[in-house]
Design a protein around this nucleic acid. Sequence first.
DNA 1: AATGTTTATCGTAATATTGCAATATAATAA
DNA 2: TTATTATATTGCAATATTACGATAAACATT
Lengths: 110, 110
Amino acid sequence: MGITKAAHYSAEQNELAGIIKALGHPARIAIVDYLLTVDSCICGDIVNELHLAQPTISQHLKELKNAGIIKGTIEGNAICYCINETAIEGLKNYFNGILKKLENKKFNCC
Amino acid sequence: MGITKAAHYSAEQNELAGIIKALGHPARIAIVDYLLTVDSCICGDIVNELHLAQPTISQHLKELKNAGIIKGTIEGNAICYCINETAIEGLKNYFNGILKKLENKKFNCC
DNA sequence: AATGTTTATCGTAATATTGCAATATAATAA
DNA sequence: TTATTATATTGCAATATTACGATAAACATT
């Protein structure tokens, strides 16, 4: 990013943008896709699934975790990552809220 | 962004990440917020609302438009921007789909 | 035609992101 | 203890994003 002026926006706008930004990369969409397909969630095999080096995956996982989109717990040697349902619900509600506001608008002219 | 390897992901993943990324900035969240509050959508006053210079706003509007999140039509001298309901529905459906998949998963252990 | 108004584009500086090799850390296995 | 395995961190090069001043383009008004 460049020089984002976070101070100009509300806390809600900054937080929401942060969460959404975390999903705004195909690798991280792919990680979420993958977490949904596997029934176990010991997820070292993400490195084999995506064509990215292990440090790169680790970095993407960290960003998803910081944004609250995934949760991780230590499972002995490995780490268990899974999707944080609450965060996804929050995003669904945000977009649903936009749709409801659009219904109440007098003009959405374009 | 750095060196994103778009070729490694599916067309759906790339497209979705692009749309989501467009909303992953507080200024663009604020623009969407603002478009929802005004009943007219002649939107030159976005420049007064957000604390950003006119070229910066124009650039953000362009990105939102490229991503399909807003639509713009020429209204004489000015331009009328409004939210593209279809795109928002798509995003809502994506997150709703994740929630449904989570319900069907045997383990979401974390 | 000349002026003003509104939005877009260009060029560029400052900063952020992406990806990876090398290395570190932490737990397990031999 | 010494490997081995799994994940994280560091450091860096390549690239992308953000913001803005200057300017252009398009239309409206006088």
